[in-house]
Simulated scan of single mutants.
Amino acid sequence: MEITDLHHLALPCSDLERSRRFYREILGLTEIPRPALPVAGAWFRVGVSKELHLVVGDAQATFRASKGMDTNDIHFALRVASYRQALEALKAQGYREDTGPDDPMGIRTSMRIGYPQIYILDLDRNVIEINAARAD
């Protein structure tokens, strides 16, 4: 088997309209057409050729529930052109640095692997890493 690329990432969500707003307004992703499927959801374009699929979860879905920020937990990473602009955009949306791990609007930053990283939670407490090639 030769894997050539990562096509999409699927995340459970509990409230589709709330999650759609988050991914459009906070992260600035573009919603793309989605085929008629037996479960509610929304698809978003990430970069040029990647996709993020939101799927409305039921009682069997895997949610992080009340877990706080844990950067070592399951997460996905988005690469941005400007670390500084990403941090400023998140702060303009109400995110805050240096808060406790249970703050849903908290930002955790790191340089531990050689490039700048920002970690936030979405509305279902999925961990999102936003990183850049370098600090600017």
Rank of each mutant, 00 (worst) to 15 (best):
M1L: 09
D5G: 11
L6W: 06
L9T: 10
L9S: 03
L11A: 06
L11T: 01
L11S: 04
E17Q: 13
R18E: 03
R20H: 05
R21Q: 15
R21Y: 13
R21M: 14
F22Y: 05
Y23L: 10
R24F: 12
L29I: 15
I32M: 09
P35Y: 10
A40K: 06
A40P: 08
G41D: 03
R45Y: 04
V46T: 14
V48A: 15
S49H: 06
K50L: 00
L54I: 11
G57S: 02
D58Q: 09
Q60A: 15
F63M: 00
R64S: 14
K67M: 05
K67Y: 03
H75G: 03
H75M: 08
F76C: 07
L78V: 10
A81G: 15
R84T: 14
A89H: 05
A89V: 01
A89G: 06
L90N: 00
K91C: 01
K91A: 06
A92F: 12
Q93M: 14
R96G: 07
R96Q: 15
T99A: 09
P101D: 00
P104L: 12
M105W: 10
M105F: 10
G106W: 04
G106H: 06
R108I: 12
R108G: 03
T109F: 08
T109D: 11
I113R: 11
I113K: 08
G114R: 14
P116N: 01
Q117W: 10
I120L: 04
I120G: 04
L121P: 03
L121K: 08
D122T: 08
N126G: 03
V127Q: 06
I128F: 07
D136N: 12
D136F: 10
